[in-house]
Design a binder for these strands. Sequence first.
DNA 1: TCCTGAACTGGAAGCGCTTCCAGTATTTCG
DNA 2: CGAAATACTGGAAGCGCTTCCAGTTCAGGA
Lengths: 337, 337
Amino acid sequence: MAEAAPRRQPTLDEVAELAGVSRSVASRALNNAPHVSRVKREAVERAVRQLAYVPNPSARALATRQTGAAALVISGEDPSIFADPFFAQVIVGASAALEEADLHLMLCLAASDRGRKRVEELFRSKGADGVMLMALREDDPLARMAQEAEIPVVFGGRPVGPAPRWYVDVDNVGGAREATEYLLSRGRTRVAAICGRMDTEAGRARYRGYRDAVLAAGLDPFPPLEGDFTEPSGAAVMTALLANHPDVDGVCAANDNMAAGALRTLRETGRPVPAEVAVVGFDDLAIARIADPPLTTVHQPITEFGREMARMLVALVNGQDPTPLILPTRLVTRASA
Amino acid sequence: MAEAAPRRQPTLDEVAELAGVSRSVASRALNNAPHVSRVKREAVERAVRQLAYVPNPSARALATRQTGAAALVISGEDPSIFADPFFAQVIVGASAALEEADLHLMLCLAASDRGRKRVEELFRSKGADGVMLMALREDDPLARMAQEAEIPVVFGGRPVGPAPRWYVDVDNVGGAREATEYLLSRGRTRVAAICGRMDTEAGRARYRGYRDAVLAAGLDPFPPLEGDFTEPSGAAVMTALLANHPDVDGVCAANDNMAAGALRTLRETGRPVPAEVAVVGFDDLAIARIADPPLTTVHQPITEFGREMARMLVALVNGQDPTPLILPTRLVTRASA
DNA sequence: TCCTGAACTGGAAGCGCTTCCAGTATTTCG
DNA sequence: CGAAATACTGGAAGCGCTTCCAGTTCAGGA
């Protein structure tokens, strides 16, 4: 009966008026800043409720020079890289941490040129209070943008090259080494590595871990057999591997997707796993548990990875200077090795 | 040698001054609006380049009352629902469509109360130009918020209850019916359904499709055996099913995850698939191809789903009135049935 | 009682951009 | 060649909020 239908949103002025205070006081009360008496604070609260007032984020952003949002940028030629369930888990963690800090999450899949241009504008216009950057490849144009950025940037996984100031990463070398050592300790002597993209630091580091372990055992490492972190590429590399080295008895894959692909090839070619060939993966995604046989793999705390990345960014936004973080991995043994 | 290091971002005023025009003209030139002579337009462009000017999004948002962002809200008690690769694919599509419209994507995992409160504020404060809403359950509090929202909302998948004004969905009934008919046409006569959550419209609709097909064949449908769309729940329901109906010879699962779980149970209990029990899934995610045996499943165009949802939202934001969309499904036959 | 300082208060100046509108320069046509 | 229409232009008024700062109020102490 009251309420004109298409009414404008109430503004802070109206709240102030209804509460019988000035706009400044109302603003302070809202942000519960000091210098507001109890009485007025309550009057403002009442008015806010009565008018169903909600502050206008844009106005606030303009006045405070803070957007209230953090961006998660995922690089990649091809948006389908994002189909890797790995990222979903990262997002769950990051989202939770940002929620605590009351920041919104902007997701940027920087695949096309257009997408990269938008990210660049995001950086330059300070369209977010900070940026998390993932899945960078060697010579990734996003690296340069991050360099020049005047807003906080944290890297999820070190990029190839010199380590940035702020990042969170996983102990890729240690994880891969442990996995390889496990294979060797079970008597495997011809252990190959199915590598991820070697233009990523994760791909390289995991190969280094494998290599270290093999060398330490006095054996000859295989050269890197490069896949691209997808299941089909794992299957393909495994096929080639079997053709060239039919006597291979262990495979250390740079992630679970490729390990699953290897399992498929082995199944299709009738090689029993682990009897003839043992396989280990990396990530410990759902697929590792579902695979047949279930995958022995290097567990990494992915959700935590996302959470820590976001926390680091929040710290940065708040003017602190957090230190880089390297999360531990842990070998999970299942039937495949 | 020039350039003071921590210089402020250049503003439109400075661009205008450098170009020798007024701010209004500069603004018009920037948004290439009419009423700007060629000469001045070029002068402005030059100044923009020279100062490396980027407009301030908050200021623009405040002045235009448009945020330049669309939100994708995913409901769910538990953030891990988001781990379903389904969502990743939706995001790929939505992200692409929003990029075309030059909108940013905000991702809201509305799991906790806090998360829902933030979404509510997003709605009420018009913190985004529009919202895409997914994975709603019966009596979902987000439904009410969407009701009251004064900003465009499109639903990804109809919610339980009356259909909203704008949504995109998939032909769940038709897909499930086709899958079930396929099983029946291959001579299976005791076909059960492993259902998804029955407090979602997708869960219900897929069961309806199954039911329709079974009834049409003159057989008795199984009651809904409810899982929650996860692999473990599929395995658990399958175990129970085998215990109660050892003679079941076909299973129609409401998604691939649960179908994979069913396959695992069948493998572990030594029932050959499809010889003794045939299994079909729904979704056609990567897991369907990877499963052993590969899963016959109902393909749905998930990326397109996301894209269409975003396109519909963009249309809405632009003042159009798009019509709801129901995307077709298609049965993909592989070895499991 | 008067003075000092702490606690509040609200006016006013922005934050950086869009857009209305009145005014000026340029055409175009009778 | 003058008048009317057209094309540009820039001043100024916002958009809705924060925050500085000068001013006011009110205890408490001398």
